[in-house]
C-alpha cells in the first residue's frame, strides 16, 4: 500500500496541518516508508493473539460518580484568544 500526493493533502487537511506544495513529496515518501514497515509487521501470524491494550497487567480504573471538579471558568478560558461573558468566541460557524 502507498499513498499519492492527493492523499497526503487530504490527510493533512483532515488533521488541520498546513502543508506547502514543496513539502508534499517529502511527506509522501515518509508516509510510504511507514506503511511499508506496517506491511512488514502484517506478515507476522497473530491468529488467536489478543491485541495488546497495555504492556502492564492493568485494568481500567473507574471513578465514583461524585462532582469533584469544575467551577473555574476563568481558568478554562485563560488561554482563549477571544472570550465574552464566560463564553469562548470563535469565528462564526453556521450550518
Amino acid at each position: 500500500m502507498s499513498v499519492d500526493a492527493a492523499t497526503v493533502r487530504r490527510i493533512a487537511h483532515l488533521a488541520r496541518i498546513a502543508v506547502a506544495d514543496h513539502e508534499i513529496e517529502h511527506l509522501r515518501g515518509e508516509i510510504n516508508n511507514m506503511l511499508a514497515f506496517v506491511e512488514q509487521l502484517n506478515e507476522v501470524n497473530v491468529d488467536g493473539v489478543e491485541p495488546t491494550a497495555s504492556v502492564e497487567d492493568m485494568k481500567l480504573k473507574m471513578r465514583d460518580d461524585v462532582v469533584s471538579d469544575g467551577n473555574y471558568a476563568k481558568r478554562v478560558l485563560a488561554n482563549a484568544p477571544a472570550t465574552d461573558d464566560g463564553f469562548f468566541q470563535v469565528p462564526k460557524v453556521v450550518e
Binding site: 460518580d65 461524585v66 469533584s68 471538579d69 469544575g70 478554562v76 464566560g86
Partner: peptide, 27 residues
C-alpha cells in the same frame, strides 16, 4: 443520568454559568 461526566469529575447539571461545569479534562 449521573452526577459527574463520563471521564471527568465536572457536574452534568443542566444550565449553570457558561463554562462553569468544565474541568481541564473537558477543556
Amino acid at each position: 443520568t449521573s452526577n459527574a461526566k463520563l471521564f471527568s469529575g465536572a457536574s452534568t447539571e443542566f444550565g449553570g454559568e457558561p463554562n462553569s461545569h468544565v474541568s481541564l479534562v473537558d477543556a
